[in-house]
Design a protein around this nucleic acid. Sequence first.
DNA 1: ATATTTTTTTAGGCTAATCTAAATTTTAAA
DNA 2: TTTAAAATTTAGATTAGCCTAAAAAAATAT
Lengths: 221, 221
Amino acid sequence: MAFSFTEENYIKAIYKLGEMHHDAISTNDIAAKLATRAATVTDMLKRLSDKKLITYQRYHGVKLTEKGRKTALAVIRKHRLWEVFLVEKLKFRWDEVHDIAEQLEHIHSDELIRKLDQFLGKPKFDPHGDPIPDEKGVMRLSSSTRLSDANKKGRYILTGVIDHSTLFLRYLSDLKLKLGDELEVQAINEYDQSYKVMINKKHPEFLSKQVVTNILVQAIK
Amino acid sequence: MAFSFTEENYIKAIYKLGEMHHDAISTNDIAAKLATRAATVTDMLKRLSDKKLITYQRYHGVKLTEKGRKTALAVIRKHRLWEVFLVEKLKFRWDEVHDIAEQLEHIHSDELIRKLDQFLGKPKFDPHGDPIPDEKGVMRLSSSTRLSDANKKGRYILTGVIDHSTLFLRYLSDLKLKLGDELEVQAINEYDQSYKVMINKKHPEFLSKQVVTNILVQAIK
DNA sequence: ATATTTTTTTAGGCTAATCTAAATTTTAAA
DNA sequence: TTTAAAATTTAGATTAGCCTAAAAAAATAT
């Protein structure tokens, strides 16, 4: 039961779309996510349905089967473990690893992933703070919230990011902000929802609404 | 200038066939090496020729261009570096790594390979004793010979293997024989060219002609 | 030097994954 | 509730990579 590069990408896209709105996923959404055409997606949905990875009703979108969900989580597990490897061992920056992990996630070898996991010390989170599913496809759900949702003064730990773009990650790095750092919210501007924060008790910064919406934190104490 | 998985495999196969007889490579030999059909090979040769990776004359075989040679060596470099990673870091045995490296060798990222090389300490040989080409595609040629060619008593260091099959590598492991070990040839049977050797000054073994033909050594002193 | 065998190529087809254009179904608006 | 718009599917092509069968060229044997 090994799937193609392309099939795995469709399954992963469907899984990720399903994380938000967990009703059936539309053809158009999948096409947008994969930068392909709706007609192409329809073709593929038939094939994925034949392989029992999704349930598909013409004109009414698709859902992952249990088998599909397992497959998606296995690919996500591989992606995130490889990202840890690239950052921790090869010293890539967190904004450089996505494209390489996109390729590595499709290498087929259970033993490889078992040993890689071991080598990395069985990490629970990737370099962006995303949880890594275990061998069984179990992924602990995040107890983090967007900083914009915390919405009150106090001290927080940066635990993850939502936007994974190079531009955003570089911006955070430029602010000397990385996972595990402390953010003390000193003021929230009611007009534009920008935050005034102190980073690691050292330097004050202004974070726009867009930025605080894309940052995941846990309150301290 | 990135090539497909398949194109890279053809180029690698042509390079390897060219290492032995360095006249033009035949369609049939390529088909045999890749376990495909001659007609399929002919199709691909046209495409590789269009991409200037080979020079191809109908009915008269093919040769790699300089560009093709560089491409082959880059793939071989990746394959061998990944094998080092799998054995040294992930603790795979030397007979388990080939198939996984066959997949990893097609990951496209120069920076990845640069950093992997660094991480591994810029190794010069892979776990089977094969030399690793450098970034420029330069590969030092082996000063090793087949033990069968040494053909006289004396002490040798095991520096490599020719047969990379699981069966052969497992057999050597069972003899407690690995790269760097000492082999003292104590007698050569003139009838069947089998060798009586002492391994690491410890245990004596008989090695058949087939075995000594597939072992690379360097004489000590 | 000719005939036979082997090798290689061509011709024609298949599947996975993609596309555009047209048809169909669903949804939203008047 | 009919109609217009949006979403989706079908139809028909394309490309990469593969196949078999038949034709053509080269190598070998008589």
